[in-house]
């Protein structure tokens, strides 16, 4: 078994959790979707760390010395969170990543094998 990082990306301007007009019911439904999905991986004993969400605001530092606000000013999709899973292969890891709720909100999941230091 190898460890894989799942990186969730989506557009903050369209993702329901970041919309100010979201209703409590919408939020609850979204939470349930995520819980069902991540617990489905845990049920196969393949979740290493459920990971975390990221706060939208941030800073980006560059080699030219510039510091800018947020990552999302330049690119449409931002990293919204991450999880760690384990799988026998990259193919299996990608299969586990399928059904991730972010995919139903025009987001993406990047699956990367951990190259342990």
């Amino acid at each position: 078994m190898k460890d894989f990082l799942l990186i969730y990306r989506a557009d903050y301007s369209t993702y329901p959790a970041s919309k100010p007009e979201r209703s409590p019911e919408e939020m609850q439904a979204l939470t349930q979707k995520w819980m069902n999905w991540v617990a489905g991986i845990a049920a196969q004993e393949k979740l290493v760390d459920r990971g975390n969400r990221l706060v939208p605001s941030g800073k980006v530092l560059k080699s030219n010395g510039s510091v800018s606000d947020g990552p999302y000013t330049e690119i449409k999709e931002s990293i919204m969170g991450y999880s760690l899973i384990k799988a026998a292969s990259l193919e299996e890891a990608s299969k586990l990543a399928g059904g991730c709720p972010i995919l139903s909100y025009d987001g993406s999941v990047e699956v990367r094998e951990i190259n342990a230091i």
Binding site: Q32, M35, A39, A43, E45
Partner: peptide, 19 residues
């Protein structure tokens, strides 16, 4: 949802089946 949370705390085959 409670079984989901339980699995995130600790995996067990029984919990997975009940879920």
């Amino acid at each position: 949802q409670l079984y989901n949370q339980l699995l995130l705390i600790e995996y067990s085959p029984v919990t997975a089946l009940n879920r």
